[in-house]
């Protein structure tokens, strides 16, 4: 049933965000620490487990695939509700700080991407 997939997804998200909240409280920051990431890990582990432990039927899968496919439209809606005015109209310093952070981070990617730790090296 489709609702099983949606419910499984909800379960993963709620558990993840809950754990992320507690993690944030434990280390004393006013933010959720990796809640969504934990939820994703949970879903990945559950879906990998299902190969031999419990079967996820195709209708159940559709419940998850639907939300996965809604991802881009949701991101488009997210873009349409950003406070773009505030970003643009607050003066040069904020814009330069934001732009510089992005440029430096982009430049860093190729350097870190070369690091492959723990991977089997056939050569």
């Amino acid at each position: 049933m489709v609702i099983y997939g949606v419910a499984l997804l909800s379960f993963c998200m709620l558990v993840g965000v809950f754990v992320g909240d507690i993690l944030g409280n434990l280390i004393g920051v006013q933010a959720n620490v990796g809640g969504v990431g934990i939820a994703m890990l949970l879903l990945i582990i559950l879906s990998n487990l299902s190969h031999y432990k419990f079967q996820i039927g195709s209708a159940t899968e559709n419940g998850i695939h639907f939300w996965s496919a809604m991802y881009i439209p949701i991101v488009v809606a997210m873009a349409a509700k950003q406070n773009v005015i505030a970003a643009i109209s607050s003066g040069w310093m904020a814009i330069i700080a934001g732009v510089a952070a992005v440029v430096v981070s982009f430049a860093m990617l190729p350097l870190l991407d070369r690091i492959h730790i723990g991977e089997k090296d056939d050569s």
């Binding site: 997804l9 965000v17 969504v36 695939h65 939300w67 996965s68 488009v76 997210m78």
Partner: peptide, 15 residues
């Protein structure tokens, strides 16, 4: 486009 649906869809992509 709020955080609730955004995070829900992000989690779904992990499947």
């Amino acid at each position: 486009g709020g955080a609730m649906f955004r995070d829900f869809a992000i989690v779904a992509t992990a499947f």
